[in-house]
Design a protein around this nucleic acid. Structure first.
Lengths: 182, 182
DNA sequence: GTTTAGTTTAACCATTTGGTTAATGCAAAG
DNA sequence: CTTTGCATTAACCAAATGGTTAAACTAAAC
């Protein structure tokens, strides 16, 4: 997950695991199979929980608070996940269309409908659901992808970075709600 | 830039350029040197303009509108840039600390001060500059990193995606300003 | 026409790398 | 104790890959 599919060496993986390289092949056959296992494991850490939250039957603001909090909790504990998943998706876009979501593709249409409804009820301003969802995802995920750059620019160490991310659990939700509430 | 340092093959690069592989070495010596040239070229497309906008002497809201518009213009024309730069930074964090910014490191302290000032003047709410800047960057960059995923989830093609990104030139600024204005 | 200096290529080379194999280890079952 | 079936390893292999070299090409300078 650190080096990516093409950057990782089977020998290094074996070393890291403290076993012989042949044993890696014994269990996983080939690099691609191993990659697939790792990738699915990573993706399944990220997506199912999100889909669940998005489809809960709760008010929009609560949903936003839940989503950002829970998403950040996952990613804080697995900071390599976003870069790994997105990077590999980027390099082989077609390979994942159905592969990774399986029979449970994330469906934001319900959330989009909810956003429209709460607008009708005068709770929020008129907002484009597509952009709202993108904004929410962006603010949750990006800091972990840009971590090295952020740390360099802000001149902060890992601990300070983690503290910032803990803050974001509530910061992002407040930021979004402040923007869209009427 | 599509495949990354470890994923790209010198032969493929030569093929793509329609020349002999030895010629690539003739001009660039080795893969790392070629990478360095490409990386610096990519980074210099992204950062200098941003730094300039951030340090202009204009009101915060105008600055936010300028930043998001110009950033998106660069990235819409070079959609591979963010993933490439961030991915390679991720894989060799130390190698870029000074290397890529050279003697002109981006300095957001002035912007942070401006945010504080405009809060004192009652123009905006109390906001943490670090998070505000991260949010702004996130919303500009992330969609291009998550493009394959976004297209899959939203079921949209390249043209529709581009249209969404054109919208974001103003959407993001409005979203931010709505959130922080008093 | 010859020289000269830069450009381009096919053929080659050494190393790396994913992958295989045959032998050995080992613990539970008989 | 022997057998049995999986686990583990050292040694090995073929292909891929970054890199080199010597020869050929080209166009401008003389």
């Amino acid at each position: 997950m650190e080096k990516g599919l093409s950057g990782a060496r089977m020998q290094d993986i074996a070393n890291e695991a403290g076993i012989n390289k042949a044993l890696v092949h014994y269990y996983f056959r080939c690099k691609e199979k191993l990659f697939e296992v790792i990738f699915k494991e990573a993706a399944s850490k990220l997506f199912p929980r999100i889909v669940a939250i998005v489809n809960e039957e709760i008010p929009l603001f609560d949903k936003i608070r839940n989503f950002t909090r829970q998403y950040l909790e996952v990613v804080i504990e697995n900071p390599y996940l976003p870069m790994f998943v997105l990077n590999e998706m980027h390099k082989q876009p077609h390979a994942f269309h159905a592969k990774m979501f399986g029979n449970n593709p994330p469906d934001f249409s319900k959330l989009a409908r909810q956003i429209d409804e709460e607008y009708q009820q005068g709770i929020i301003k008129a907002v484009n659901p597509a952009h709202l969802i993108m904004n929410m995802m962006s603010m949750c995920v990006f800091p972990f992808i840009g971590k090295p750059m952020i740390q360099e620019v802000m001149k902060i160490d890992d601990l300070q970075f983690r503290y910032l991310m803990e803050q974001r659990k509530t910061e992002i939700a407040n930021f979004i709600i402040d923007s869209i509430k009427k």
